[in-house]
């Protein structure tokens, strides 16, 4: 595990390809030229930079390593289908805001600039005309919530790779045992 890794573009592309390959042919809403089910490469890169500020890597893995982008990509082709346009528009608006404020897309900003910009999005104070159809605070709220789901939720949903957040919290798997006469950690006989 390389939890402190901050992904450059090349490594990120590799991670994206691996994740998509691992997911197999599950959900068919794939777009041309992208290994993701829903995102374009640029969208996924922007989102990855956002989620790694929401849950940054430190002594434990961050959101990107845990597969949060994969989690969100998968849900957008499932239960969160209705939010596809929100993500498409929101991620575009994040980069547009970043361009007009710093002259670079979000993923290429310095870490402290990214944090600064995310705070402004959260407070609805991003000075840009990019947020006409959707408030930046609402979009940021979705990303924060979905990041928490992808990082702290069960690995079966496509995030929390190798149960990394549960290991961080020193939780057994599954996180709650049965009790008294029933110990799920032991196979049941008969």
């Amino acid at each position: 595990m390389q939890p402190t890794l901050r992904l450059n573009r090349r490594a990120f592309l590799q991670a994206a390809l691996t994740a998509a390959a691992a997911a197999g042919a599950g959900v068919a809403c794939s777009r041309n030229g992208s290994p993701w089910r829903f995102f374009t490469l640029d969208q996924a890169r922007t989102l990855a930079s956002m989620v790694d500020q929401i849950i940054p890597p430190d002594q434990d893995a961050g959101a990107v390593w845990a597969g949060v982008v994969n989690y969100i990509d998968r849900q957008l082709c499932g239960p969160y289908q209705a939010l596809q346009e929100t993500y498409r528009y929101g991620l575009g608006a994040v980069d547009q805001t970043s361009q007009s404020n710093y002259g670079k897309v979000f993923a290429d900003l310095q870490s402290h600039q990214q944090i600064e910009l995310l705070h402004r999005l959260e407070e609805g104070k991003a000075p840009s005309g990019a947020w006409k159809q959707l408030s930046s605070a609402e979009f940021f709220g979705y990303v924060v919530d979905h990041t928490m789901q992808g990082f702290y939720g069960d690995p079966r949903h496509g995030g929390n790779r190798e149960g990394v957040s549960w290991k961080m919290l020193n939780l057994p798997y599954p996180p709650i045992r049965g009790r008294v006469r029933s110990d799920l950690s032991k196979p049941r006989s008969g």
């Binding site: 500020q53 929401i54 849950i55 940054p56 430190d58 434990d60 944090i115 995310l118 959260e122 924060v144 990041t147 702290y152 961080m168 919290l169 020193n170």
Partner: peptide, 15 residues
């Protein structure tokens, strides 16, 4: 709500 402070909070207080 998010960021390094949030992650620290969860790690420190979940248990």
């Amino acid at each position: 709500r998010w960021g390094a402070g949030h992650k620290d909070f969860v790690r420190r207080y979940y248990r």
